[in-house]
Amino acid sequence: MKAEDVRRRLSTPLTGPAFPPMSPRFTDREYLNIVYRTDPEALRAVVPEPLEIGEPLVRFEVMRMGDVTGYGPYTEAGQAIPVSFEGERGEYLHAMYLDNFAATASGREVSAYPKTTGSPRLYVDHGALVGTLDYGSLRVATATMGYQHRALDLDEARAQITVPTFMLKIVPGYTGRPRVSELVRTEITDVTVKQAWTGPARLQLFEHVLAPLADLPVRQIVSASHILTDLTLAPVRPVHDYLKETS
């Protein structure tokens, strides 16, 4: 294989890449979102500067991807934290757990999504929308919401899921020191909201050393939504370089 062919490759293994070289399109992406109030001190311990925290809120999400080009269906769960950066409001993506290796590898390598393996589920059970997350054989989160209790305004639903998102891109170097350490920004584009609902909700988080969602404890449920969409993820762009601070 010639050097120019190697330079065109996006990921390893060289002859069987872990993910396809494409920007995926999500069709029938289904969200269960529960926004809750937590401890301010817990948020300050995990949100990196220069992001700023306002109200001590967290959004727990479970997303069932009905059809994704390049990856197929999969499910994902995690936590996002409302923040601001240079006056722009958005969310810091704190943790993401999913059951698809290609989407995990692509999210981490091409972008900066904090993805790792887990076993999330989203389903309906006796009139409740249920989202769960298992890490290995242990349950770490259970969310329930009344199934389609009240319609949610589609513009409000679109606003919920299209806020800018911020993430950390950390790539280690061969000496053990970071080669890349950046705060990056992205957003959802080309969105079609098909259905949106709200209703009562509950959320339980369980202690686990390798899936520490409960480090941001639930103090009060603020809101919940159930949204069905088609969308595309925009490429990330760096907005802050941590390594320049020390150079």
Rank of each mutant, 00 (worst) to 15 (best):
E156M: 04
D67R: 14
T229M: 04
L133R: 08
V218E: 05
R9A: 14
H94K: 13
A103T: 05
V47S: 05
G176R: 09
P56A: 12
P21G: 12
Y174M: 05
T175W: 10
A105R: 12
R59Y: 00
T144I: 04
L183E: 02
L205T: 08
V46A: 06
R59S: 10
S247I: 13
A45M: 04
R237P: 00
F60Q: 04
Q204V: 01
T69V: 08
L129P: 02
K169L: 03
A112I: 09
Y97S: 03
H126Q: 14
V68D: 02
R108V: 08
M65Q: 10
V68P: 01
A141W: 06
T165N: 09
P20A: 11
E207K: 14
P73A: 09
L138G: 02
R89A: 05
A151S: 04
A103V: 06
T192C: 00
A45R: 15
D215K: 15
A42S: 15
V68S: 01
S181D: 01
Y123E: 14
K115I: 07
E86L: 12
G16K: 15
G72P: 04
A201Y: 04
D241P: 05
V124N: 04
L10N: 10
V130I: 14
F206T: 11
A159H: 06
A128K: 15
V180E: 08
F85I: 06
D39Y: 02
R37G: 02
F206R: 15
G136E: 10
P178F: 04
T232Q: 13
P120A: 07
R237M: 05
E187L: 13
Y174R: 07
E41N: 15
T175V: 03
E61P: 00
P178T: 08
Y113P: 00
A77G: 06
E88G: 00
L57N: 08
E41W: 06
S84K: 12
T144H: 06
A105E: 06
G70L: 03
A103L: 09
I170N: 00
R202M: 02
A234Q: 13
L228P: 00
V46K: 06
E49G: 14
V140H: 08
A234N: 13
N100V: 09
W197G: 01
N33F: 11
T144M: 11
G78D: 03
E55L: 12
R150H: 03
T117H: 03
A224Y: 03
D5Q: 15
E187S: 14
E49H: 13
T142M: 09
A3T: 13
